[in-house]
Deep mutational scan, measured.
Amino acid sequence: KYLVLALYDYQEKSPREVTMKKGDILTLLNSTNKDWWKVEVNGRQGFVPAAYVKYL
């Protein structure tokens, strides 16, 4: 498993997404889509914009 760092705040806009705050450390679950990565944060799984996170 990889960890990624939230570069920006992101507010979920659909039930498939998750909210994150700048500085959050997220567990990367799937990065096959170049635009949306599946992550786990605070016990929830969902998608965030790939451009908003970077590998640690």
Rank of each mutant, 00 (worst) to 15 (best):
K21I: 08
L56A: 10
Y2Q: 14
T19N: 07
L3V: 09
A6W: 03
V4L: 15
N33S: 11
V53C: 11
L7P: 00
T27W: 12
K22N: 04
Y8V: 12
L5G: 04
P15V: 11
E17W: 04
V18L: 15
K54R: 12
E12L: 07
L56V: 13
K1D: 11
G46P: 00
R16T: 15
V53D: 00
Q11A: 12
L28S: 02
G43D: 10
V4D: 00
S31Q: 10
E12D: 05
Y8S: 10
S31K: 14
L7R: 06
A51N: 13
L29Y: 05
T27S: 09
K22C: 06
L3G: 04
K1Q: 13
T27M: 14
R16C: 11
E17D: 06
L29P: 00
D24N: 06
V48H: 00
G46V: 03
K1H: 14
D24V: 04
L26F: 06
L56G: 05
M20S: 00
V4F: 07
L28F: 04
W36Q: 03
P49T: 01
Q45V: 15
V53Q: 00
Y55W: 12
L5P: 01
P15D: 14
L5T: 10
K38E: 14
N30D: 15
K54V: 15
I25P: 02
G46L: 04
K22P: 04
I25K: 06
N42Y: 09
Y52D: 03
K21E: 07
E40N: 06
K13P: 04
N42E: 11
V18A: 06
V4R: 02
L29H: 06
S14G: 13
Y8H: 13
E17N: 05
Q45W: 07
K1A: 13
L28P: 01
L7D: 03
L5N: 03
P49C: 03
G43Q: 07
D9V: 02
A6M: 02
V41R: 14
V41F: 14
I25T: 07
I25N: 03
V41K: 14
V48P: 00
Q45A: 12
F47C: 09
T19I: 03
K38H: 12
T32C: 11
R44A: 08
V18K: 01
V4T: 05
T27L: 13
K54N: 09
Y10K: 01
A51G: 13
D9T: 05
K54F: 10
K13F: 05
R44T: 07
E40D: 09
F47Q: 04
A51E: 12
K21S: 10
G46A: 03
P15R: 07
V39I: 08
D35S: 12
N33M: 09
L3W: 11
E17I: 03
Q11N: 14
Q11F: 14
W36I: 03
F47E: 05
W37M: 05
V41A: 13
L5H: 05
L7W: 04
V4N: 01
W37G: 00
E17R: 04
A51R: 14
A50H: 03
K1P: 13
R16I: 14
M20C: 06
D35L: 13
V48A: 03
L28W: 02
V53Y: 01
P49Y: 02
Y52E: 02
T19L: 03
V4Y: 12
D24G: 03
G46W: 02
T32Q: 12
R16G: 15
Y55M: 15
